Structure formats: structure tokens, C-alpha cells
Simulated assay, not measured.
Amino acid sequence: MKVWFITGASRGFGLEITKAVLASGDKVIAAVRTPDEFVLQVSNNENLLVVPLDVTNEEQSKKAVLTGHDYFGRIDVLVNNAGYGLLSAVEEASGEEVKKNYDTNVFGTLNVIRAVLPFMRKQRSGHIINISSVGGLTGSIGWGLYSSTKFAIEGITEALALELAPLGIKATVVEPGYFRTNFLDASSLNRTANIIEDYAETVGKMRAFATQVNRKQPGNPVKLAEAFIKLAVAENPPLHLPLGKDTLERYEHKTAGFAKDIENWYDVIIGTDHDDVVK
């Protein structure tokens, strides 16, 4: 039986993963901003502990993790799910809008990782699962700033996996595509107040698309939660886990384009070393 610490557990992926973990018989420390609202969505369960947490608050992150660890005696799986989207042209967003997105998606994730790792290092076991996005694998119109937060999560997780392997702790970054959750609702997606007309044919169309596709996305969040259960029990979990056909197609398109750039610019790429470097 494992003990999971799940951030952003009150809705979307976090809620579905919490339900799936409890159904599997494991224990959950559900970290949420508003515990009272969350409790109404999940029936009483002796394997569930709800703790208040705003991941941007480092001291509250430490307190939530300590409370959960003291209650169940250990933490085996950390799921960093808390985060929100920012739909904007790169130029349109204000510095404050970008900073707030980073405070939650990147620095909030780091706050919880730093709070959990001392316990995992002491027990010489654990699994950190950071939720990224298809936007963490490739940038796209209107999502550049949000994607940059997820690109950061990709790099952080890759480094974590290397640093933690000798300590018996695993790290995985999960890249979901478009799943039928509330991600495109106003509760999880911010749209900038500033709109520049010159981007009407690019970002403007993406704004319209996001509205049209909301609640019609191809991905099934219940099946995503099932994938997390499999991931947590895997003896050799992957470093990267892209979820959804759309994610896989986008990644394959990017890598094919990358390979083509290398082929076309090969001589320039390898021609930048000093002449005394053995080729």
C-alpha cells in the first residue's frame, strides 16, 4: 500500500487521480486550496487526508507535507498537478501575468518537491511524478508562455531523475494532450486582458478554438488516472510519459522537423568547434 501526495486534488486530473488511487486501496494526502469544497466531492474514506495548500506558499507547502507524513507515516508518490493555463501571444501578456503563471506552475512545483524530498531521501524510496503537458514538448500559437513553464518542468524532472536515481527515488514527467477536463474553463485558464489585433489570424483563432473545443477534447481523464496507477507500481517507470494520440503526433511532428533542420544545417552545426578538436 502506497501513500500519495497529490496537489490540485480538487478538480480535473487531480480529482480523477485521487479517486483512482483511493479505489485501488492506496492512501491519499489530497492538497487543495479549499478543503471544504473538495470534501463534498469525495465520500468519507479512512485512507484520505485533506490538507490546505496554496503551492505558491513555501511554508504552507512544508506544513502540508509534514502533516501528511505525520498522519500516514510516509509518502511514496508525489503528484505535482497544481497549475493553470495562460492563453496569450508572447507579446500580449504582462510581466505580472507571466510571473503568476510561473509562481504556480514552476516555483509552486519546486516548493512541494523540496518539502517532500527529505522524507523520500530518508526512506530511500519514492516516486516524483510531475505533470507537464503536450505544451512541454512543443510550443504552439497562443501557448508559448504557458509552454515555457512546462518546458521548465521537463528540464527539472530530467535532472531530478539523474540526481535521485542513486538514492532509490524515481522521477517521471507526464505530458497529457487535450483531455476533457475543466482546463479550458475560466477556473483553470487565464486569458490576457491585452489583445493585439495583429495576432487576430494566429492567437485570435486559437482563442476561438479553445472555446469551441472546451469539454469536447479527445482525452479521457478517467483513463489518464488509470495510467497513473500503472505508473506508480511500475518497477522501471519511464522518465517521460506522453498521454494521448494528439500528444504523440505533435511530438513526432516536432522531432521530424528537428531532424530535418539538423540534416539541412549539418555542416554548420559541426563546423563550430575549434580546429584542434578531434572529429
Rank of each mutant, 00 (worst) to 15 (best):
residue 140 S to M: 14
residue 140 S to L: 14
residue 140 S to E: 15
residue 140 S to V: 09
residue 141 I to M: 14
residue 142 G to E: 06
residue 142 G to W: 01
residue 143 W to V: 03
residue 143 W to C: 04
residue 144 G to S: 11
residue 144 G to F: 10
residue 145 L to R: 00
residue 146 Y to M: 04
residue 146 Y to I: 05
residue 146 Y to Q: 07
residue 147 S to P: 12
residue 147 S to T: 10
residue 147 S to C: 15
residue 147 S to I: 01
residue 148 S to R: 10
residue 148 S to V: 01
residue 148 S to G: 13
residue 149 T to Q: 04
residue 150 K to T: 07
residue 150 K to V: 01
residue 150 K to N: 08
residue 151 F to P: 04
residue 151 F to E: 12
residue 153 I to A: 02
residue 153 I to N: 03
residue 154 E to V: 08
residue 154 E to D: 14
residue 154 E to C: 01
residue 155 G to I: 12
residue 155 G to F: 12
residue 155 G to Y: 13
residue 155 G to N: 13
residue 156 I to P: 00
residue 156 I to N: 02
residue 156 I to L: 15
residue 157 T to D: 04
residue 157 T to A: 13
residue 157 T to K: 00
residue 157 T to V: 13
residue 157 T to C: 05
residue 158 E to Q: 13
residue 158 E to K: 04
residue 158 E to N: 11
residue 159 A to L: 08
residue 159 A to E: 06
residue 160 L to K: 01
residue 160 L to F: 00
residue 160 L to D: 01
residue 160 L to E: 00
residue 161 A to H: 03
residue 161 A to Q: 13
residue 161 A to L: 03
residue 163 E to S: 03
residue 163 E to R: 01
residue 163 E to V: 02
residue 163 E to N: 03
residue 163 E to L: 04
residue 164 L to G: 06
residue 164 L to P: 07
residue 166 P to W: 15
residue 166 P to C: 07
residue 167 L to A: 06
residue 168 G to R: 05
residue 168 G to M: 02
residue 168 G to S: 02
residue 168 G to W: 10
residue 168 G to V: 05
residue 171 A to G: 07
residue 171 A to F: 05
residue 171 A to W: 00
residue 171 A to Y: 03
residue 172 T to M: 08
residue 173 V to Y: 08
residue 173 V to R: 02
residue 174 V to M: 09
residue 175 E to C: 13
residue 176 P to A: 09
residue 176 P to D: 12
residue 177 G to E: 05
residue 178 Y to S: 08
residue 178 Y to K: 07
residue 178 Y to P: 00
residue 178 Y to N: 12
residue 179 F to Y: 14
residue 179 F to N: 11
residue 180 R to L: 11
residue 180 R to H: 14
residue 180 R to C: 14
residue 180 R to E: 15
residue 182 N to T: 14
residue 182 N to P: 06
residue 182 N to F: 05
residue 183 F to H: 02
residue 183 F to R: 01
residue 184 L to S: 12
residue 184 L to C: 08
residue 185 D to Y: 11
residue 185 D to A: 15
